[in-house]
């Protein structure tokens, strides 16, 4: 049951960009429509999940071939949207908390988790509020979100505060290169119409070096950067070395830090 506090609109200051939240909220009911505005994320999902599963299993020494390899791990999904990655991670055994600054997204995510029969703790919060709540997680994932926040450095710092010492942070975003401008903005938004025009602001895309610097400032050490490539012939995404457009990053919060 939604309480008044649940429904409170998250603070539009801090790392939350109100205009971004509004644009995502306006299409929130279509988060799970695989041919809708979030189609590219659905397409990207298997390869993102492959990276997340592999990384978390490596980090915590889990057997990736077991049925529920993430059992017992508390993981936060920041900017979870409708729960596209939150639900699969829950199915792999993780105790999931999903937060999003959009009330509408959280409402959709809650309803969908119920139909999926998954117990996920969804909260309409910005990451600073989660950090302030005192909850600490074994791992935190923030997928395709850092390029949408108002203050990236503060956002990453808050993410780091949510993770216990020895825990992991996993991020995915778009690099700020000429190639990502052509493919990610002109190609995906204007030519292929994969995503709504104006969904991305290229100047907010993040170079891996900048993200690594923000993570270091938050006390985390980058351990891996992996590129996501798209093969237009087979129409599928794959993990590889090229980080010039989409990439994922894994960082560790050292023991004794925090």
């Amino acid at each position: 049951m939604a309480t008044q506090a649940d429904r409170a609109r998250p603070d539009s200051s801090g790392t939350v960009d109100a205009r971004e939240i509004e644009s995502f909220s306006s299409v929130a009911d279509r988060w799970w429509d695989e041919d809708g505005p979030f189609k590219p994320l659905h397409r990207l999902n298997p390869v993102r999940l492959a990276y997340l599963k592999r990384s978390v299993c490596d980090h915590f020494g889990r057997d990736a071939s077991s049925g529920r390899p993430l059992s017992g791990l508390a993981i936060a999904d920041v900017g979870c949207g409708g729960g596209l990655a939150t639900e699969p991670l829950a199915r792999l055994g993780a105790a999931m908390t999903g937060i999003d600054a959009s009330d509408e997204a959280i409402a959709v995510a809650r309803a969908h988790a119920e139909t999926s029969g998954l117990a996920i703790d969804y909260r309409p919060l910005a990451v600073e509020a989660l950090a302030a709540s005192g909850d600490r997680f074994d791992a935190l994932v923030a997928l395709e979100i850092v390029e949408h926040v108002a203050d990236r450095r503060a956002f990453i710092a808050a993410c780091c505060r949510c993770v216990r010492p020895g825990g992991a942070i996993l991020l995915s975003t778009l690099n700020r290169t000429a190639r990502s401008f052509v493919l990610g903005v002109v190609g995906a938004e204007y030519l292929l119409r994969w995503i709504p025009r104006g969904a991305h602001t290229w100047s907010k895309f993040v170079k891996p070096s900048e993200l690594a610097r923000d993570l270091r400032a938050g006390g985390a050490l980058v351990e891996d950067v992996t590129g996501l490539g798209f093969d237009p012939l087979s129409n599928r995404w794959f993990l590889g070395r090229g980080v010039s457009v989409n990439y994922m990053m894994r960082a560790r919060l050292p023991e004794g830090a925090g």
């Binding site: 298997p46 999940l49 991670l89």
Partner: peptide, 15 residues
């Protein structure tokens, strides 16, 4: 399923 996707999710069907 090994990635946590449900039987009706788009990823496996698209594959």
């Amino acid at each position: 399923r090994r990635l946590g996707l449900g039987a009706g999710d788009g990823g496996p069907l698209e594959a």
